[in-house]
Design a protein around this nucleic acid. Structure first.
Lengths: 253, 253
DNA sequence: CCCGTTTCTATCGTATGACTTTATCCGGGA
DNA sequence: TCCCGGATAAAGTCATACGATAGAAACGGG
């Protein structure tokens, strides 16, 4: 596990002590080690559990409470919030999910979201892109094509490609979904065997077709092709997930 | 301005001191009173500005930094982050936008997002809803129909209607967009003249048609009708915005 | 005169202890 | 049985001190 996720859009400073505490608590919460409703260690007792001051601990809790992960109340204590309260689209929360086991349902849900959002984003990008936007998207595509499959620069270029498309929509709220999309892509790339060259080539072609539609400023075409890209990626990811979960069942999905 | 937004999904406790500080800072940031890149008051100096302890102030900053609004660094100070770093889909951040002036571009962008997401959500809801989900959606619709137009219970029922549809999708990440949708609806309802009965009736019919499609479990129909609902709402809202911004220009839009 | 290095220092980060406020729990009284 | 009120445990707030970081200025060698 432990994919090296670069700091893209993450707000938590891992160098600082409170940041380490927040990270540690968050991972425990998201993996389910600290189930919803469970009590976090008392602010006074924690001296014995982890040796940090109340100050650092409290700041970590404040950070997490802003994302809906925990809820603190006098006398009751600080409790893990129910999952419905979590802000699952928050970049940090998504990053923390990488530390947990790959949850197939969660990945499916994220792909579903991608499928709803990314084609529309591609349409807007095709309609509204500036020349600078296009340069950025093209540069990202070149980064994908000119680096070895599944190497880190290639992955980063893939993420940059999708992020640049969101940026070209000129719709800030919509752009806030870019981290969710990138997290999904990272998951799927992480799952793939590094020697799966067939998929990589197919994916590259998918990307090139999207880029081409954006160059032509053809919104409908861009949307359709982005749909195809996401579906292809979903299918290959599901195949890998099925293989992982149950190596015998190669027929399913 | 100052619409009374109820606490739906908001993580910040306004009873606590740090919460008030966070709220105050956030509003200053979002309205632009504290522009991006500007320095927040020094943690030592603030004793004179607002009379709170460093502790409370720092916890407020931690809360805001988790949402990308500010960024603190030793020696440099704590700065307002650029808008691209803000998590605009965070329920708190959205709520704070209500304190700022109505920004037409922002509302347009949110409607655009609605238009991409809500029809798909309605489709899923129609396909996956349980009987309990349906009951909840129906109850919300009744709440809209049986209360006076634009009264608070009616508005809440409207929000509940859309939220229940998201809940029925069984897709937690997707559900995290419900607050953004609800915020948009609140804005548009807030803008409407309370005597605009024509629009209210039309909107009610739109909602009923969506509900009907979900009852029938017809996904495509639900998506199409939700599309219609959002577009109707967008058009009437844009008309109102145009009227507000420039009362002479009634032809535009 | 330029540029790298060192030192200085402003600011955030962390630690600690005391006190305040809140809300739950529980027991006593109507 | 119900309501009220005190005891109490936990988070919330405050003040103070010290540590750590990184920007900036001073310094010195080339």
């Amino acid at each position: 596990m432990q994919l090296h996720v670069h700091a893209r859009a993450t707000r938590l400073n891992p160098d600082r002590l409170f940041g380490q505490v927040a990270h540690r608590l968050a991972v425990a919460i998201i993996t389910g080690a600290s189930p919803a409703g469970s009590l976090l260690p008392n602010e006074d007792d924690l001296k014995d559990e982890i040796s940090v001051s109340r100050t650092a601990y409290r700041e970590a809790v404040k950070f997490l409470s802003g994302k809906g992960l925990v809820e603190a109340r006098p006398k009751s204590g600080t409790r893990v919030a129910p999952r419905e309260a979590w802000n699952l689209l928050d970049p940090d929360v998504l990053a923390w999910h990488f530390k947990a086991d790959p949850n197939e349902k969660f990945i499916r849900d994220l792909f579903e979201l991608r499928l709803f959002v990314e084609p529309s984003a591609a349409r807007l990008a095709a309609q509204r892109r500036s020349d600078a936007d296009l340069k950025r998207i093209e540069a990202a595509f070149r980064g994908m094509a000119e680096n070895p499959p599944y190497a880190e620069p290639t992955v980063n270029a893939d993420l940059a490609f999708h992020e640049a498309i969101f940026a070209a929509t000129r719709n800030p709220p919509l752009q806030c979904l870019a981290p969710a999309v990138c997290a999904t892509i990272q998951w799927s790339l992480f799952l793939k065997a590094p020697d799966d060259e067939f998929f990589f080539t197919a994916s590259l072609i998918d990307h090139e077709r999207v880029l081409d539609a954006i160059v032509q400023r053809d919104g409908d075409l861009a949307a359709a092709r982005m749909s195809g890209l996401v579906i292809d990626s979903l299918n290959s990811t599901l195949r890998l997930l099925a293989g992982r979960a149950d190596p015998n069942a190669s027929k399913t999905a």
